[in-house]
């Protein structure tokens, strides 16, 4: 039920489906980061498999997974009776490009200038 609620909430908020706020909020919780770590170690796990590594009830884990899916940080696929969870790093890549990469480029440019100055070109 929780997942359904999340999906409906997701659809009504469809103007910003990859809302950066959602990504950062979803990441702002140690359990959800742990869930992403677990999926990074082994992709495509069921709820039951994920719960084996978490000290929490299935219902709580389901809620956390719903928030991660709402932020598009995980994707789910039904295979037979099982629902498999996959880490979806596409929004994280967007965060990387916007918040990390451009600052790295700036720093690299500074290093480049420094090297030129010190070496006297």
């Amino acid at each position: 039920m929780q997942l359904n609620t999340c999906i409906i909430g997701f659809m009504t908020n469809a103007t910003e489906p990859m809302d950066t706020d959602k990504v950062f909020k979803a990441l702002g919780d140690p359990t959800r980061r742990r869930l992403l770590d677990l999926l990074a170690e082994r992709n495509g796990q069921t709820l039951g498999q994920l719960c084996e590594n978490l000290d929490m009830a299935r219902q709580s884990a389901t809620q956390h997974l719903g928030i991660l899916e709402d932020a598009n940080l995980i994707s789910t696929v039904k295979r037979g009776r099982e629902k498999l969870h996959f880490i979806n790093p596409v929004p994280l890549h967007g965060v990387y490009v916007r918040w990390v990469q451009k600052f790295e480029q700036h720093r690299l440019a500074l290093l480049h200038d420094l090297k030129q100055e010190l070496e006297g070109d």
Binding site: N72, L84, N88
Partner: peptide
């Protein structure tokens, strides 16, 4: 074998 599933909204 392993799988990846990526979702993007465009």
């Amino acid at each position: 074998t392993t799988s990846f599933v990526y979702v993007n909204y465009i």
